[in-house]
């Protein structure tokens, strides 16, 4: 049913730390691996070893350069997957009922056997979180690894999303953002977690932690300065060399 639930019992989601993400793309690979080998249609690739490779991914890492008014530019790596929005436009536009938001935990999923691959849900998502799989003809999106987080066959430490489990920098956190006492909610409160494109009115569950303020570099400090300064010695070997060269 593509009407959104009034409210969900929990709001499971991710908190992504833009301060610690090192841009290694490990989460991209582990997400693709887990979601190709497990639930649903595999994430296909087209022409993977040819001249024009492309493929379906549920999580992609962008990199942005931010230039403050003063001081050096900063490079920020920016992982992006479905934000499991509370007011998810992708759910209400779906004509078949394939897209839905779960009442029990707020996860936004696609029932692939109902999807006609019209693509309208991807059009309605501001974040580019949905991709139509070219081989299967159905819409793919982040499942919040619903087949891991409740999976009793996995050891307890693995019952978190694959991307979170994999991240070597600890930049991805998973938990209930509807519970103000949860670790993730605390983290969001402490670090000023933010919404992406709040003006689109989607009310994303996933939050992004902004980069911490950088140390200020003293403008005078220039590590190359000593090497670039003109030679002004008038005594010693360099002084002699200077004069000798002058005379030539």
């Amino acid at each position: 049913m593509t009407q959104l639930p009034e409210q969900t019992e929990r709001k499971l989601g991710l908190v992504i730390d833009l301060d610690t993400c090192v841009g290694c793309h490990a989460c991209v690979i582990s997400c693709k691996g887990w979601n190709t080998e497990n639930y649903g249609a595999p994430l296909s690739d087209q022409d993977p070893y040819g001249a024009d490779p492309s493929g379906t991914f549920l999580n992609r890492v962008h990199s942005y350069e931010v230039q403050p008014e003063a001081g050096p530019a900063q490079l920020i790596h920016f992982p992006k997957s479905c934000l499991h929005c509370e007011d998810a436009p992708c759910v209400t536009v779906c004509p078949t009922g394939a897209s839905y938001k779960r009442v029990e935990d707020g996860i936004v999923l696609v029932n692939e056997s109902d999807c006609i691959g019209c693509g309208l849900c991807a059009w309605s998502c501001p974040y580019g979180a949905r991709e139509l799989d070219a081989a299967a003809g159905v819409m793919k999106k982040c499942t919040l690894c619903v087949d891991r987080i409740y999976n009793d066959n996995l050891p307890e430490e693995d019952r978190i999303p694959s991307c979170v489990r994999t991240c070597p920098a600890g930049a991805r956190h998973f938990g209930d953002l509807g519970d103000p006492d949860s670790d993730v909610s605390q983290l969001v409160a402490e670090r000023g977690g933010m919404d992406l494109m709040p003006e689109q009115g989607t009310k994303p569950v996933n939050k992004y932690l902004p980069p911490r303020p950088k140390d200020t570099l003293n403008d005078e400090t220039n590590i190359l300065a000593p090497l670039l300064a003109p030679v002004e010695q008038t005594d010693g070997f360099l002084g002699w060399l200077d004069k000798a060269l002058e005379k030539l």
Binding site: L18, H25, V28, D52, P53, S54, G55, T56, F57, R60, V61, H62, S63, Y64, E65, V66, Q67, P68, E69, A73, Q74, L75, I76, F78, G119, A122, W123, P126, G128, E131, L132, A134, M194, D195, L196, M197, P198, E199, Y208, P210, P211
Partner: peptide, 28 residues
């Protein structure tokens, strides 16, 4: 607003997620 990084300074796309093409680029 897309990146939430505007409070730091001017945001510029530095590197796309992939060198190849994808569904999003084709469609949108």
């Amino acid at each position: 607003t897309a990146t939430g990084l505007g409070s730091i300074g001017t945001v510029r796309a530095f590197e796309p997620p992939h060198t190849g093409n994808n569904y999003l680029l084709n469609e949108f």
